[in-house]
Design a protein around this nucleic acid. Structure first.
Lengths: 338, 338
DNA sequence: GAGATTTAGGATAGCGCTATCTCAAAGTCG
DNA sequence: CGACTTTGAGATAGCGCTATCCTAAATCTC
């Protein structure tokens, strides 16, 4: 019985496959990577040998030799918001079948942590990067730019730069909610925001702008940097009722806050939408079953993930994108709560 | 100006740090890895040089040379259940400060996908593995065993084997729910289960067993392999009411199903707990704000992640664990819904 | 104080791949 | 038809680290 595995790792190497297929190691490497200069017959033989030995390439060796790994770095600000889970799933659905792996970096909405993640993960030499939003520390931006690794931004549509992005206009979504509430005759509006990241603030700006454009008075702001949650929704809704009891329309920056408000309203006997209208954001699971069923903005987070991944693949293949800025829109879903 | 970066990657290498510190490359390697045979003064000098060059080790080279990466493979059956997000966060809080990276594998409750993930990720030579549960395909179990990589199982407490695990008894949790419902005078019980993974079935078995032990008749089963969700909760609750209108106590295998039931009950004017008691599982965010506030089983998923990670670190350091099976218990949180 | 042991650091040789260069054989063209 | 390109495959040389062996100095032993 001949040696068919490496001493160090206990697994077969390219050399073993090459020996079995009766070709050189480099031809084996090429055949397995589908480099087109290898005769189909040899590719066949190499593939068969690899299969026979259950050969799996060693990614460390590959990365070291080529100075490029087969992984994609994906940076998201949170995993606790279901929104990003759906985006990640969609991204993975594109990359896994193509043999790319995902390195998931969760920076907890903390720009310093984002910077550290970028520094650490760049050392793995990812072949592409997917980022959430445009706003980040100067150092982080510089690390990214210097790395030269192709990247695509997700979720919003940075106004100015020529960078590749896939998302929707957070500001327009905010405007759409204001227009809707105004069309329902609501005039004493409030914006309830948590986390206060860039995108929440864009929604808020669009919301306020639409109100101003319609000639009505500015919405009350109930803002907190705490992460969004159902519990927080209860707290902020109580605060709103205490501070501005006359409010007749509220835009919550995320559905879970709105869920909390609905629960509190049920408990207090405040009828939604009779006494006030409630609009959420994202159409998270459960929004359509809430009592009352929640009016909210359905955001295309899965499509964003999919399209961002596809565009990144195109960049990796050296293709030029017809559109650098992809706007996937959003949909205001009007239900019972408004 | 001297060369302080590699031609291939554009980053400084160990050799550059060594040159700047005026010691050999291998001493530099040792100093940075805190190998104890290096004089403190040299360590100091090397650290300073590394810092001056913003040196970051190349993980591919390290992995190739040592046949072991600095990453931990974590396999979870889903990311869409908030439960596992909390576990992942807790795991990461232990590993990141120690310089380990997490490879997250989501197998979507699919044992073939789990097998593929194991095969692919083992090629990265992780130094440790965290697994969810005990049940997996024979091939997967064999791949794991053959790899010889230290591993810890999370979530339940496999009855027989001597494997290291951290979790709680899913069966006992099921029993506790049954005992609670029986103590409330409920006799016409139902178990509503989705996904039907190993742990759900253990809960069900404990639930039914406790009912049998108390001498009452078996709970009605409403089961489906679909993934748990609020929408599905609505559907299954409707089915339960249609099939067994006399039911007076229901155990939902996950809170989101119970949420759906509460919403449907509110809509139909079915009063919980007067007409029937509802108990959920996991105490997911929102459970305590649901109308009515949901009685549920609080599971220690964050502690499980943390303790599993700590125990895995001990295994990596060659320590022997005083307890191979860590039972972190659970707590029945009685609220308004029962 | 000579021989045995320990210790700190260095020299060397890969880890398993791929980039790059090379070369023979086959095809191309005026 | 001879010089020129193209084409498929191999030989070679690393990628940036660490395992392993080795040496010289320091320490210990009786």
């Amino acid at each position: 019985m001949k040696d068919t595995r490496s001493r160090a790792t206990g697994r077969p190497t390219l050399a073993h496959v090459a020996a079995l297929a009766g070709v050189s190691q480099i031809t084996t490497s090429r055949a397995l990577r589908s480099v087109p200069t290898v005769a189909p017959e040899l590719v066949e033989r190499v593939r068969a040998a690899a299969k026979a030995l259950s050969y799996v390439p060693n990614p460390a060796a590959r990365t070291l030799a080529s100075a490029r790994s087969q992984s994609i770095l994906v940076l998201v600000p949170a995993l606790s918001n279901h929104l990003f889970i759906e985006t990640l799933e969609a991204i993975q659905a594109v990359f896994r079948p193509r043999g790319f792996e995902m390195l998931i970096g969760n920076y907890h909405y903390d720009s310093y942590e984002e910077e550290e993640l970028i520094r650490n993960y760049l050392s793995h030499q990812p072949c592409g990067i997917l980022l959430t939003g445009f706003k980040r520390s100067a150092v982080a931006a510089d690390l990214l730019a210097t790395s030269g690794v192709p990247r695509v931004q997700m979720m919003d549509l940075g106004g100015d730069t020529a960078s590749v992005c896939v998302g929707f206009s957070q500001g327009s979504a905010g405007r759409a909610v204001a227009d809707h509430l105004l069309s329902r005759g609501r005039r004493k509006l409030a914006f309830v925001g948590a986390q206060l990241d860039d995108r929440v603030m864009q929604r808020r700006a669009g919301f306020q702008q639409a109100i101003a454009d319609a000639g009505f008075s500015q919405a009350v702001d109930i803002l907190t940097p705490e992460p969004s949650s159902v519990d927080l929704g209860v707290t902020l809704f109580k605060r709103l009722l205490a501070e501005c009891p006359q409010t007749d329309g509220v835009f919550f920056c995320n559905d879970d806050l709105a869920f909390g408000a609905c629960f509190e309203a049920l408990r207090k006997g405040i009828s939604i939408p009779q006494r006030l209208s409630v609009v959420g954001f994202n159409d998270l699971p459960g929004a359509s079953q809430m009592v009352p069923r929640l009016t909210t903005v359905q955001t295309p987070r899965a499509s964003i993930g999919r399209q961002a991944a596809i565009n990144l693949l195109k960049l990796l293949d050296g293709e030029t994108l017809d559109t650098e800025r992809v706007d996937l829109g959003f949909e205001l879903v009007v239900r019972e709560s408004s």
